[in-house]
Design a protein around this nucleic acid. Structure first.
Lengths: 113, 113
DNA sequence: CAAAGATACATAAGAATCTAATGTATCTGA
DNA sequence: TCAGATACATTAGATTCTTATGTATCTTTG
């Protein structure tokens, strides 16, 4: 089972930030594979979604980049900047809070009018 | 604190379906107020988001409508159709599953390479 | 050793879904 | 009376994703 795409919307940035917080530095392709692995294939981040997100994080100053060559092939590593670390904490705790709220909403058994 | 809007994206349809499952029939404005109340103002559904969603649910055959007049003012009640009830179960359990996955993703403490 | 599949970057058109603004109209309480 | 709440609805624009495409290198396998 793969989650319907709408569910992923809005959480991608937080997922990426959190992965970077846990793994120090990662490159794009690695992120897609890591998410796929950690979620047992339930979340598959496409490159068309990931790269624009990474670029946005960079232009917002939340991540810094360094390029490395593996043979002739380029690899672009992303790391959290100090403000990126703060942002990560904010986004993660907001998402955790949101999930609590949603869990409550989904469990409610109220009067059937 | 109000959740950043991107978080709501993709969950609105599920929230509405679940509310209808619990409350038999509801009208649009009532839904906005109910969500606001149940989430202590953390989730505020705007009408610009809600009405198109309700109309989409209707044209998908997931809800049926009945109009009622309160004085001269019209009120449009929405109820789940049989397929809407099935859809609600699907969407709710998918979202619950998704939240488990996200919780795992957010809590992971892995090697710092 | 050729070809397929994996690795690795990137962009772009289009779809989906929300925000913010606007519109109309009625009801209620101070 | 008049502001605020109730109640419907639409629309322009923004955001963010999907799907497709492009380029190039590396690795594995028949």
């Amino acid at each position: 089972m793969i989650y319907s795409s709408e569910l992923i919307k809005g959480t991608l940035k937080t997922i990426v930030l959190k992965l970077l917080a846990d793994n120090k530095k990662m490159y794009g392709y690695e992120i897609t594979q890591k998410v796929k692995e950690l979620t047992l294939d339930k979340i598959q981040i496409t490159e068309g979604a990931l790269y624009p997100t990474l670029h946005a994080l960079e232009s917002d100053g939340l991540v810094t980049t360094e390029t490395e060559f593996i043979g002739k092939r380029v690899r672009k590593y992303y790391s959290l900047s100090p403000s990126g670390k703060n942002k990560t904490k904010e986004k993660v705790s907001e998402l955790a809070d949101f999930m609590e709220t949603m869990k409550f909403l989904l469990d409610i058994k109220t009067r059937t009018v």
